[in-house]
Amino acid sequence: MNAYDRLKQMIRTSEGQMTVWSQPEVDAAFDAYRAEILAEEPPAPSPEFNAAVARRAQLLAEITARGGEWTTRRTHNLYKSLGITGLFRSTVREDLAAVHRAGHLVQHDEPGRRFYTAKGGGDRG
């Protein structure tokens, strides 16, 4: 029985079992559970996650180097020129939003138009 199952057994009273556990027993069960969780290997990032991180890093480098206003269309065209194809507009939009959330871009909203610029100027192009 693993530590998680042991904890479940200790707190289950719906089965007519009314065992009273001592504080040292409860503490030991929690300690064993914590040790099990900490010993687990974290799952490896998916290939899609790694691709998105690399694509967004490349996007930030291009925005920083080129400057100017970056719309979904301009970003999509950049990706095509870099050989990154098969992306939906929503993916491109999410890339821009993610780089913005990370604090690297400033979002500008105008009626019917959203664009981003590099934080700290970046208006070279």
Rank of each mutant, 00 (worst) to 15 (best):
G121N: 09
G68R: 11
T71F: 11
D95L: 08
T85I: 13
W70Y: 05
D109I: 04
R74G: 04
A98D: 09
F88K: 13
V99D: 10
Q17G: 00
A98N: 10
A29K: 01
Q107P: 03
A51G: 08
E25I: 00
G67H: 08
E25Q: 10
D95W: 03
E15C: 07
I84F: 06
S14Q: 07
I37P: 00
P45Q: 15
N77F: 04
E69H: 13
E15Y: 03
N77I: 05
I37S: 04
S81L: 08
Y79M: 14
I37Y: 04
T117R: 15
T85E: 15
A39K: 09
Q58D: 15
A57L: 14
K8N: 07
V53Y: 13
R6W: 00
V106A: 15
G103P: 04
A51R: 14
T64Q: 15
Y116P: 01
P111T: 07
Y116A: 04
R101N: 09
A3K: 01
L59R: 08
K119L: 14
Q9D: 05
G122E: 12
A54S: 15
T85G: 13
D123E: 14
H108G: 03
D31F: 04
S22A: 07
E40L: 05
R6F: 00
S22D: 07
L82I: 01
I11Q: 06
F115S: 08
R93C: 09
V53G: 12
D27R: 08
H104E: 12
L7N: 01
R56H: 11
G112H: 11
N2H: 00
S46E: 10
P111F: 04
L7V: 09
A32V: 01
F115G: 02
M1H: 02
A39R: 06
D5H: 02
W70C: 03
V20H: 02
S81F: 05
L7M: 12
A97P: 06
